[in-house]
Design a protein around this nucleic acid. Sequence first.
DNA 1: ATTTGGTTTGCGAATTCCTCGCAACTAGAT
DNA 2: ATCTAGTTGCGAGGAATTCGCAAACCAAAT
Lengths: 155, 155
Amino acid sequence: MVLTKHFKERRSVTTQLREHGLRLTRQRRVIADVLQQAGEHLDAPEVLRRAQQQMPGLHLATVYRALESLKKLGIIDELDLMHVNGHGHFYEARTNKDHMHFTCQRCGSVFEIQDPLFEKLKTQIMDRHGFTLRVARLELGGLCSSCTAKIKEVT
Amino acid sequence: MVLTKHFKERRSVTTQLREHGLRLTRQRRVIADVLQQAGEHLDAPEVLRRAQQQMPGLHLATVYRALESLKKLGIIDELDLMHVNGHGHFYEARTNKDHMHFTCQRCGSVFEIQDPLFEKLKTQIMDRHGFTLRVARLELGGLCSSCTAKIKEVT
DNA sequence: ATTTGGTTTGCGAATTCCTCGCAACTAGAT
DNA sequence: ATCTAGTTGCGAGGAATTCGCAAACCAAAT
């Protein structure tokens, strides 16, 4: 069950919230769960849709406010996936393994990429500039391998 | 003068536009110039403001359309600078040296960072996945060194 | 368990940022 | 100079997000 599965994470979320003078409300809990379950980039209306299955009265404005809080705490990340469709944003739960996002501008598919070089780059930037890094978003756009092949055919 | 200074760039822009069935209109030329002169991230209303000094009748909708075209051609890049102020976007002319953007979430200042490792990472991703890379946006958020120091004082 | 006081929510209205439809206009090929 | 498809200005329209406020709620102290 959801409650047990995420118990440890939930506790730490409570603590983190508390540190910022925030409360762990039912709606924030449900919204965080939805993102942790999904594992993948959802937009705000989709988060609402899924969360409403457990909380019918939930309002979109609350979703936006919760996403904002969770983002500030570093629990979730915000993406725009190269704005393939409109100018909305996507959200995903943060995991221990940071990754990059490649969006194919022809077919719209999204690939998650991991690379140790990414970690190295971030560390190097922190060290060299004395920054405290809280978010690092590497978004890539272009053609996926399959679309690259198709384009070459035509030419 | 602007016309001579950017003549070479301008010609190549014309060619690039032509290849996509687009025309080099006076408004697109002025808008591209504004961004090349500014060298730095401007939002759409600011681009309008500056461009209107040479073209009073210019409309914001045209600015958005031009930015969209120039972005597709890879002449300019779009940024959101961690959405420090609202959810608008910023634009900058692309140079031969790609760079990353760090935004301090406390004081709002933006730093441009270059690192050979960034180039290497991009190349490696292309090679490994067979992607055709058209845009690579690495946006970082956190505390700049000065704000990092101030935070430590308080604690 | 109850009280208390600041936090958060639901709601609809409001705002911001961006896009569209269309007639008039223009770049650029012939 | 002419032709034609791409482009612009304009105001309306739309999508995404935020706001103001009263009611509801969480959590700390009693």
